[in-house]
Design a protein around this nucleic acid. Sequence first.
DNA 1: CGTTCCATATAACACTTGTTATTTTACAAG
DNA 2: CTTGTAAAATAACAAGTGTTATATGGAACG
Lengths: 188, 188
Amino acid sequence: MARKETITIEMILETAFAMTREEGFSNVTARKVAAKAGCSTQPIFRVYKNMDELWNAVYEKAASFFQDYYSLYPRMGKAPFTNLGMAYIAFAREEKHLFELLFVNEGSGIGKKSMYELLNGKEGNVVYEINLAKAAGCEEPQDLFMKMWIFIHGAACMSLTGDYDLTDVQTQELLENCYRDFASGNNR
Amino acid sequence: MARKETITIEMILETAFAMTREEGFSNVTARKVAAKAGCSTQPIFRVYKNMDELWNAVYEKAASFFQDYYSLYPRMGKAPFTNLGMAYIAFAREEKHLFELLFVNEGSGIGKKSMYELLNGKEGNVVYEINLAKAAGCEEPQDLFMKMWIFIHGAACMSLTGDYDLTDVQTQELLENCYRDFASGNNR
DNA sequence: CGTTCCATATAACACTTGTTATTTTACAAG
DNA sequence: CTTGTAAAATAACAAGTGTTATATGGAACG
C-alpha cells in the first residue's frame, strides 16, 4: 500500500547524539544530521515536530547516558562522594561535549534537569552517599556534600579548559584527601 | 578635504563589549553591534579588518575588565587566596557573560589567555597569594593554591547554572574554612 | 563656490539556519 | 501491472550571518 520507512526515529536520534558527543551540541543542525545519517532533512521532520523536539531528545539521551556511565564506573573510592566525584570528573574529561550540555548550560531553552536531579538519578546516588557520610560519623553530611561537590565540579570544569589534567588515580587520592580535610574540619 | 568620522573605534568596541556583558558574546554580530551603535555595519569594517578582530578586542577588554574588577574588589578575606576567590566568585555572579567568555571557553578561536594568566594579571596576584600562604607557614603553597582554586572555580561555575547562591559574606566564611581545612590537612 | 576625498549608508553576494511546499519514488494491495 | 499512498528527495522561503561593491553625502581645501 505504501512505501516502507528506511530512516527510523532511532537512527536520527542516534546520529544526533553521536554528533553531540563528537562535535558538540551546537553542531546538531537539521542539514548536518541529515548528511551524517545519509538522507535528506525530510525524515527528521517526519518523526520530530521540529528541531527543538530532537534537541530535547538528545538532551534526555545524554542525561541517561550519564546515569549509565556512573552505573558502570568502577567503585574504587574509599570515602563518601569520591566515587560519584571520580565518575563525574572522568565524564567531563572523556565526554566533554556531553558534560557541557548537561552541566555547563549549552542549549538555551534545552536542559531542564537540575544538577542535583542529574546526579541523584533514579537510584538516589546523592542520598546514598550522604547516608554513607552519616554512617561514617559525619554530623553535617549535607554541608559536606556541598563542599565536596563544589570541589568536584570545579575539577570537572577545569578539565574542560585544560586546567585540570590529573589521572584517575591522582584524582582518587585528591578527593579522598579532600574529604578527610573537610570532614575533620566539619567536626571542629 | 574629507568628511570627519562620527563613529570611532572606541564607540564600536564599547558597544560590542556592553553587548557581551548584557546579552552574551554570541550576540555580538556585525548587524546587532551596528544597530546598537546606531549606524550601519560599514564603520565596523572600516576600523576592524573583520569580525574576528573585533571579537579579539572584546576578549582583551573583558580580560582587563576582570583585572580592574579584582583590583577594586574590597579585601576582606583573612586567609590566602580568599580575596582572589571572593572576587572571582562575585565576578561570575555579577558578570555571567564575561565570566563565560574568559573562563568557560565560549568563543572558538577567541580566548588565548590561560586561566592562570588571567588570574595572575600584571600584578602577579597568584604569586602574591602563594607567598602569603608560605609566610603563614604553609609548606606546599602551590598545592594549596591548586586545591583552593579548584574549589573556587567550582563555586563560580555553579553560580552560572544557579547551583551556588551564597552571599559574599557566606562565601568569605566558606573559603576561609576551606583554607583552614586544606592547610591543616596539608601539614599532616 | 566648487572639487575632491573619505566616512557612512544602502544594497547585494554567498552562505547557513529552521521549516515547508512540491515533486519523485518505492512498496504493497487489488 | 496498475494504482494508491506514504516516505524520501528536491527545492524553495524567510531569516540570519560575514563580507564587499556601490552609492550617497558632508566637510575642508584651493
